[in-house]
Design a protein around this nucleic acid. Structure first.
Length: 572
RNA sequence: GGGCCUGUAGCUCAAUUGGUUAGAGCAGAGCGCUCAUAACGCUUUGGUUGGGGGUUCAAGUCCCUCCGGGCCUACCA
């Protein structure tokens, strides 16, 4: 039994996530967590909310709430929606947890002891009206290059020129609009990633099986220009992990917090401790997942994230771990995703464009979304959501191919034999051929999943569903029944067993529908098949079942048009 | 500007890493079936693989060049 540690990039706290966020991290992570559990592996699936940083403070201010209260509420909202989407986290933590505070401070202390922290005096723009330092992109002004009057302090969106905030003409706060800005000196800690460059380079180069998207981004950062740059890991903010060197105060750093990107990945570890603490377990329980000196040597660690997260997971976080000099578990495989676009443009949290997780669930059950998103996951390039494509895929794949199969088998059985697995008859060449087809199909499906090819896995799964319809059409029990009811009984007995087989294999993609199928055929047997012939005898003659309701209702043209119109604008 | 990804049937994507006649799903056409959510099955139309050049016995795949789309570029996260 393998041990699999899975982390999803942790969603930011400032609002409900859209489907693009979901498909890039939490949903594929859940797919593999469910798959590995089904295969009998021991799985630890960790996610959390990412709660620190300037946008969180601003979102709380906008909501008129204290930041701690805002985060607690939003964490609850996100946890609830994740649950409704069937995201099967073993723990959904918070980066603001005491566990993460302690661990982040611990890592900083270790890095400082190793000579990997540098104190740097630098100049930052301070807004008197806002009472805070402003990150570069929160400063607006006129671009000195092209004259665009809404250029940001990091870059002009109009002419794409990279800028320094002090380059801007008539600079003002993007938060309040105030031009009462001044440049102040402030001291910050830098992580000396450059000293670990060669070690990171060797490590990345050893990962020849990672997605190109992952390694190419890492290599770019490692080798671009002067190579990997040192990175500031503290900020002048109120809300965050206070800067400490282990348990000790850090002279000169009073009132400052660690940068959100320093503490966020550490939360993967801290959230596992949160899990152990919540269950009343001791440190050994979480350390066996994370400490290679305490049992994590045989753990396979998989990370899931959108491409914007890749530099932090391939370089900064590994630098933190390697630099600590302690035997923490490094990631074994990073599955990264491109972006999902919405109907000709980008999903946008800040602009409220696209479909958000709560809205999606208002319209349709989670499985509809899970299936479409996973079968169209942006693995090789950015992909696009359109309502027409969504309607077609869901109606054909889920309603017609899978749902209708369950329906035709159970209803035919009820009308001819009653709601019970019929007895009699024997299997012939058609049944043997089907078992061969399914055996091959199962192997293909597992191979895709083991290689973490999400789209191909969905195609392979669909092919397995199709095989059932092909068999039924060829066997034609409705015709056979008239002359040879025993043979028809054997055909339907096999077909009813196929429903269980499909439920088991499909559960990672569509867990709710899978549970309904199992419930209808009245079994708790979810054992992953190793021998297809044996798996298709799990339900014996005489086993009672109940014809289920329609598994997947079709999306009508009217529905589609209504939703298309409803989601054409921006979220209020 | 630099880097990376991408361009294959009307649409969404494959192609065992250079190897037979480029394949699936959807959409279209025809036939079959009547158990089923007007569902299912079979057959079939559809391609100068973005353009051009090169390497090779052999190129969708490698090289050069041009064109289109996208992403990243280190203080948003």
């Amino acid at each position: 039994m393998a041990r699999i540690l899975i982390t999803s990039a942790i969603p930011y706290i400032n609002g409900i996530k859209h489907l693009g966020n979901l498909v890039g991290s939490q949903l594929p992570a859940d797919l593999f967590a469910r798959y590995h559990r089904a295969r009998g592996d021991e799985v630890m699936f960790i996610c959390a909310t990412d709660e620190h940083g300037t946008p969180a403070e601003l979102a709380a201010a906008k909501a008129g709430k204290p930041i701690a209260e805002f985060c607690a509420e939003m964490h609850g909202v996100q946890a609830d929606i994740a649950d409704q989407f069937g995201l099967s986290f073993d723990h959904f933590g918070r980066s603001s947890s005491p566990q993460n505070r302690a661990l982040t401070q611990h890592f900083a202390g270790r890095l400082a002891d190793a000579g990997l922290i540098e104190e740097v005096n630098e100049k930052q723009v301070y807004s008197n009206a806002d009472g805070r330092f402003l990150p570069d992109r929160y400063i607006e002004g006129t671009c000195p290059n092209c004259g665009y009057d809404k250029a940001r302090g990091d870059q002009c969106e109009n002419c794409t020129k990279q800028l320094d905030p002090t380059d801007l003409i008539d600079p003002r706060s993007a938060i309040s609009g105030s031009s009462d800005l001044e440049v102040r000196e402030t001291k910050h800690l830098y992580l000396r990633q450059s000293k670990l460059k060669d070690e990171l380079d060797t490590w990345i180069n050893s990962k020849s099986d990672w997605p190109i998207l992952t390694t190419s981004i890492a290599k770019k950062w490692l080798h671009d220009g002067d190579g990997l740059q040192d990175r500031g890991i503290t900020r002048d903010l109120d809300w965050g992990v206070p800067v400490k060197r282990g348990n000790a105060d850090w002279p000169g750093m009073e009132g400052k917090v660690f940068y959100v990107w320093f503490d966020a990945p550490i939360e993967y570890i801290a959230a596992t401790k949160e899990w152990a603490d919540a269950k009343g377990l001791d440190d050994e329980a979480w350390q066996r997942w994370w400490r290679t000196d305490k049992g994590a040597e045989d753990v396979r660690y998989l990370q899931f994230m959108g491409k914007d997260n890749v530099p932090f997971h391939t370089l900064s976080f590994p630098a933190t771990i390697l630099g600590s000099g302690e035997p923490w578990k490094l990631v074994d495989y990073i599955k990264s995703f491109n972006y999902l676009n919405y109907d000709g443009g980008q999903f946008s949290t800040s602009q409220g464009r696209g479909i958000f997780m709560d809205q999606a669930l208002d319209i349709l059950p989670a499985d509809y979304w899970r299936w479409w998103l996973l079968s169209h996951a942006p693995e090789n390039s950015d992909s696009e959501f359109t309502w027409e494509n969504f309607q077609t895929s869901v109606n054909k794949d889920l309603a017609d191919v899978l749902g209708n199969f369950v329906s035709r088998v159970t209803k035919f059985c009820r009308s001819k034999f009653g709601e019970v697995v019929p007895e009699g008859g024997t299997y012939g060449p058609a049944e043997t051929a089907l078992i061969d087809t399914l055996t091959q199909g199962l192997k293909t499906y597992q191979d895709c999943m083991d290689r973490m090819e999400v789209r191909k896995a969905s195609t392979a799964l669909r092919a397995i569903w199709v095989a059932g319809n092909e068999y039924l059409q060829a066997a034609a029990p409705w015709a056979v029944f008239k002359e040879d009811p025993d043979t028809a009984a054997a055909q339907i007995r096999l077909s009813l067993n196929l429903i269980r087989f499909y439920a088991v294999l499909s559960a990672p993609f569509i867990p709710t529908a899978s549970a309904k199928m199992l419930s209808a055929i009245n079994t708790l047997d979810m054992e992953w098949p190793t021998d297809v012939a044996a798996a298709l005898e799990a339900l014996p003659a005489g086993h009672e079942f109940a014809v289920p309701d329609v598994l997947f209702a079709k999306i009508s043209d009217e529905d589609r048009e209504t939703w298309q119109a409803r989601f054409s604008g921006v979220r209020d």
